[in-house]
Design a protein around this nucleic acid. Sequence first.
DNA 1: ACAATAGTGTCTGTTAGACACTATGCC
DNA 2: GGCATAGTGTCTAACAGACACTATTGT
Lengths: 221, 221
Amino acid sequence: MAETPDSLQFSSILCTVDVLPLRVREGRLEIGLVRRDKAPFKGVLALPGGFIRDDEDSDTLAAAHRIAKQKAGVEVAHLEQLATYSGRQRDPRRFSISVAYLAIFSQDNEVQSKELVWFDLSSAARELKLAFDHQTICADAVQRLAGKAGYTTLCAQFAGEEFTLPGLQEIYEALTGQPVSKKTFRRRLEDLGWAEPIEGKMYQPEGRVSRPAQIHRLKQK
Amino acid sequence: MAETPDSLQFSSILCTVDVLPLRVREGRLEIGLVRRDKAPFKGVLALPGGFIRDDEDSDTLAAAHRIAKQKAGVEVAHLEQLATYSGRQRDPRRFSISVAYLAIFSQDNEVQSKELVWFDLSSAARELKLAFDHQTICADAVQRLAGKAGYTTLCAQFAGEEFTLPGLQEIYEALTGQPVSKKTFRRRLEDLGWAEPIEGKMYQPEGRVSRPAQIHRLKQK
DNA sequence: ACAATAGTGTCTGTTAGACACTATGCC
DNA sequence: GGCATAGTGTCTAACAGACACTATTGT
């Protein structure tokens, strides 16, 4: 790694982190965007982001945590690195590097933020005009989420501590964009074996006239 | 992204790229490492890497290309971003960011390099003492390669322009670490449909007494 | 003919999905 | 009982893997 003289080690590269605030509402996968209040791209929709503070942040994950908390007001359930975007062209000012993180907000505690505006993620990736290369980043996120929904506990991150199987399935379908048969979904869950029922705890929404659903949680270990 | 005053935009963050030179030889997935000739970690095995030159490199991918070419001597068949590693602790000098790239060298043109020393990747990830957090990076690479071997053209990148199905299967097994039944492997390939035989072109190694194998290539489009 | 590897045909156990059925809550 | 949703049983068609078979080369 150390190939260049010390004089080169202070670079003029912009080091930033962008977060993709994500949630599932009413069966739709949504992303929270902000309207930029500064140049460049003033007034344009963008991912929330910020410079890495090498004095405050211990690493880029910590920077993502700081930015997510600051923009969303609540603690993020799960942060996961998506990819890093860079180039001399992507920021009109100069060469920039941005490490992008998926920031998953669970249905447990609603985001209360005046800054964030929520959009359907796949629409944002296809139709919205976003600042920098943020549209590309959103498109990559769609891919990643669909790919990992099946064989990881990602869906449960969106759900929160406790969840019902119909609720989890709704999240799964929002992430993949595909409907699944109820039986198939539950069988796969059974096989993976990372969920367990909370004995005797049921979920019945306000004024809903139907059989209540068994509440589950992630197994520890 | 622009939240801080201009004075903060020149950071003292070390921006680097690390490449993971990868190849398959005799059914083993190997990684090429260098022995560092400078501090920190002088004399220790490490991934080849270098600082991002914001004047020469158009982005981190270009930087990875430059470094791969420089260390390996030949053109790399495929470069793919793995992840980004960062922190105030990982480099003893100061806060550093490193974007890691998988650099796949095909069996078409052998790497001729005095600098690179080749190790079994999974052993390197488990047993070798490497500089910085390079051991973690190698472990992540093992995961990524095993995961993507099945449903992408990754194996074909290792093979090169033209390949035989037995050869491709050997690569697949090296990446996943698992044997596959010949029938299953070929059926999957058939279903995915991204390979096609080159009519009439066969492969017969020097002095091998056996039926020759049909040579294939990737379909365009 | 034989050794060695390429490539195929077929059988069988497993799995995904459709669909119909039962269960349980509130009115 | 009726409605709505939760959860299960079962059948079928597709698929994966094992294994044995055929094919093609050089000696």
